Amino acid sequence: MHPQRSELGEFLRSRRSRLLPEDVGLTHYGGRRRVPGLRREELSQLAGVSVAYYTRLEQGQSGKASDAVLDALARVLRLDEHERDHLFSLAGQSGRKTGARRPRPERLRDGVRLLVRTATMPALAIGRGTDILAWNRPAHALLAGHLDYSAPDRPTNRPNLARMVFLDPHCRELYVDWKAKARDAVADLRIVAGRYPDDQALTALIGELSVKSQEFATLWSAHPIRSCSHFVRHFQHPVVGSMSLVNEVVQLPDDEGQRLAMFMAEPGSPSEAALRLLTDLSAEGKATMAPQRSA
């Protein structure tokens, strides 16, 4: 079975399992179900497709589904915008899956690198597989002052945000709600993996995390889908203490899959004072939490 078709089947099953008959207007006559959620025949009936066709689609034995079929499935499964886009991406619709070709090697434009390095707030450039391509001193001090500042400049040994979340003990202490951060990291990787199924480095990262982190493997199997573009994140920083920061993540339209992330504090808040102190310490080279090591 083609890996992408297998992913499509797993995604459909995960979303089918979270719905009950009464959620979609069907009568539930009681009795124990062998599997949770909607049955295939119930979903097929509501979507207006044959049970045999849907079964082949879920088992990866069918060709590309039409837009009409995918729209019907998304409607019945109550997919949100990001989940719907992910469904179309996994189904291989050329009109929706603009990033399905084999991606180019990661290179950061000089202009983006300059923007990151000269920003006064914590800022970093993130590759499609969550590699850190560049960060400024405040971002380094905020997220990973225990790592070598120059590590993003080494393509074979760059820090990786997803790997840090699950395999770096520092991150478990840094994020107040580490579980929420972990869910967001997996949800973001799910979207990226659907867009770039031929990215070997991304596939290797997912395999590594699945083997080394049971928490990652459990979250990955649940198929969370969420575009992590803006949120408030709470930190317990080892140098300046508690901070609540607004995190905005912006897609770079001319750079395949790359994003720019920035962290800000509400003016006049204790978090702004703590972030300003951290920024000042980073400029003086005093924000390192431990002897530096490579990522």
Rank of each mutant, 00 (worst) to 15 (best):
Met121Glu: 07
Thr203Phe: 10
Glu81Tyr: 00
His223Met: 15
Leu115Gly: 10
Gly31Ala: 08
Glu42Lys: 15
His170Cys: 05
Ile132Phe: 11
Ile191Met: 15
Asp67Phe: 06
Lys286His: 15
Ser210Tyr: 11
Ser17Trp: 08
Thr118Gly: 08
His2Gly: 13
Asp153Ile: 02
Leu115His: 08
Asp280Tyr: 07
Asp199Glu: 00
Ala274Glu: 09
Val239Arg: 14
Pro291Ser: 10
Val116Arg: 11
Leu133Cys: 13
Glu58Asp: 00
Leu189Phe: 04
Val249Asn: 10
Met264Trp: 12
Ala47Arg: 01
Leu260Phe: 14
Pro253Ala: 11
Gln59Glu: 04
Tyr196Phe: 13
Asp255Val: 11
Met1Lys: 02
Val112Tyr: 09
Leu87Phe: 02
Arg84Cys: 15
Ile191Asp: 03
Ala193Glu: 01
His234Pro: 03
His237Asn: 11
Gln251Ile: 14
Gly30Met: 11
Gln251Arg: 12
Ala151Pro: 04
Pro155Val: 13
Val69Cys: 10
Leu87Pro: 06
Pro291Lys: 10
Pro169Glu: 08
Arg13Val: 00
Arg84Leu: 15
Leu219His: 06
Ala185Phe: 05
Gln258Arg: 07
Met289Glu: 14
Gly99Tyr: 14
Leu281His: 07
Asp199Phe: 01
Phe235Thr: 01
Tyr29Pro: 00
Asn160Val: 12
Val35Pro: 03
Tyr54Gln: 00
Glu173Trp: 04
His140Trp: 11
Ser229Trp: 02
Ala290Glu: 01
Asp23Phe: 14
Leu26Tyr: 03
Tyr196Ala: 04
Arg96Ser: 13
Pro197Tyr: 05
Ala204Trp: 12
Ala47Tyr: 00
Arg163Ser: 12
Leu57Asp: 14
Asp148Ile: 14
Gln45Met: 15
